[in-house]
């Protein structure tokens, strides 16, 4: 109920000619952060590609990487990107419950992805491929692990946003947070596409 007037005011602010909505500026600021994240991943990708032959006589990626688990985690992350979009759609229709349900689905899919990734890492370590094994495995764990850390941070961030929305309801502030979070989540899926392609598919082909 209390949100209704705030919502109306929000719309009018939007239309003040020549003035930027603070939420739009926050969104742009977050875009710039994502671009700097692209730059960090680009150095990690470049390192991996350059060092991919450096297995030092130890296990190679083609020997140890299992594509079946990766296919499942790819579809988990892709679906979670889709459901985070559905959460944003529900948010714009002011359907709070529906939005929280989609966010929880997104979180569960993301947690499943992280679970599979940890399982994969444990399997690799068990097979004798660790961060110290060779240049190839160092760059592999750094690149894939950095993405995994991003997903993990995203999960905690999402939980914090859900708690805040349960307490304060939807307003222009919490709406901005959801929008920015979904952008981050789509970005992680976009990075994963290149991890799947350059790390996994090119290694096992």
């Amino acid at each position: 109920m209390a949100q209704s007037p705030a919502h109306g005011a929000d719309h009018h602010d939007h239309h003040a000619a020549g003035h930027h909505d603070p939420q739009d500026l926050k969104l742009l600021g977050f875009w710039i952060f994502l671009v700097t994240d692209v730059l960090m991943f680009s150095t990690l990708f470049a390192t991996f590609i350059v060092l991919r032959g450096g297995t030092d006589g130890g296990p190679t990626g083609a020997e140890l990487l299992e594509i079946n688990g990766i296919i499942i985690s790819t579809f988990l992350l892709l679906t979670s990107s889709f459901t985070s979009g559905l959460a944003v759609l529900a948010m714009h229709q002011n359907k709070v419950q529906q939005m929280i349900i989609w966010l929880i689905v997104t979180g569960l899919l993301g947690a499943g992805f992280i679970g599979l990734e940890l399982n994969e890492f444990l399997h690799l370590i068990h097979e004798g491929a660790t961060l110290q094994t060779s240049a190839f495995w160092s760059s592999f764990f750094t690149l894939v692990g950095t993405h995994g850390v991003h997903v993990t941070v995203g999960l905690f961030w999402m939980i914090a946003i859900i708690i805040q929305i349960v307490r304060r309801g939807l307003n222009s502030d919490t709406k901005g947070k959801i929008t920015v979070f979904s952008l981050y989540w789509h970005f992680l899926d976009a990075v994963w596409i290149f991890l799947l392609s350059i790390v996994y598919l090119m290694e096992v082909m």
């Binding site: 742009l28 671009v35 692209v38 730059l39 680009s42 470049a46 590609i49 350059v50």
Partner: peptide, 24 residues
């Protein structure tokens, strides 16, 4: 501005990745 920033980011990305592959 978001698209312009992204294009700049991709330019740097390609320079780093393609440049590294080429030089190494």
């Amino acid at each position: 501005w978001n698209a312009i920033t992204l294009v700049f980011g991709i330019l740097i990305l390609l320079t780093i990745v393609v440049g590294s592959i080429w030089i190494m």
